[in-house]
């Protein structure tokens, strides 16, 4: 626990947070990666269908959600910075704001899903919508999981369980949350924009 305080110039042997979460992160990246590539190749076999169906997506809400997640991710960076300086309450507030933006993301996404579902679109409508719904729902569940993790960390931070010397927990949650953001950064252009 001695070498946990990360200063700006040091090179660390392991990435921030508990190494265990990184195994999970890499597994998730792999699963999403395969799905992204599968999407691209499925599209290659069916370009017209994909381009046509893509027109019906709500690109604005996708873009807003990207901004929301990036900002939320940024808040977690601030949370980690705060705990490194020993500001537990400030850290908890940054995490709370990150979670708040998570709710904004979920709300926008649910409005989007509602629109699609009430139009009678399901996983079996066509290959494009299968991918669109699978990828976004899969990601949606990751946002929820990330929020649960962040909430647990926020409560611990508020109780003063973390300190400048011991803040691996905050970094662990932040790393996972950044991954959720990172995946959306690819998902958005891939599914909503590129044609």
């Amino acid at each position: 626990m001695i070498n946990n305080t990360r200063t700006s110039h040091e090179i660390h042997a392991t990435p921030p947070g508990d190494l265990a979460i990184w195994f999970f992160i890499f597994a998730e990246l792999l699963a999403f990666g395969v799905f992204f590539v599968a999407y691209a190749f499925a599209r290659a076999h069916n370009v017209e269908l994909f381009n046509e169906s893509q027109q019906h997506l709500n690109r604005l809400s996708g873009a807003i959600n990207t901004l929301v997640l990036i900002t939320s991710s940024y808040f977690m960076v601030r949370a980690v910075a705060a705990i490194k300086q020993g500001y537990s309450i400030l850290c908890a507030r940054w995490i709370a704001s990150a979670i708040g933006l998570g709710f904004v993301f979920l709300a926008i996404k649910m409005a989007e899903f509602h629109e699609k579902f009430s139009a009678g679109i399901s996983l079996s409508t066509n290959t494009f919508y299968m991918f669109y719904l699978s990828l976004t729902l899969f990601h949606f569940m990751h946002v929820i999981l990330g929020m649960v993790i962040l909430a647990a960390i926020m409560l611990k931070a508020r109780n003063g369980s973390y300190s400048p010397a011991n803040h691996t927990g905050v970094e662990t949650g932040a790393s996972y949350w950044h991954m959720v953001d990172l995946l959306w950064i690819i998902l958005f252009p891939l599914v909503y924009v590129i044609r």
Binding site: N4, A13, G17, D18, L19, I149
Partner: peptide, 18 residues
């Protein structure tokens, strides 16, 4: 290295992931 790879976290990932 082992300090930042804890059994508790590995266990949480197992339960959470499952």
């Amino acid at each position: 290295m082992s300090e930042t790879f804890t059994k508790a976290m590995a266990r949480n990932i197992f339960y959470g992931g499952a």
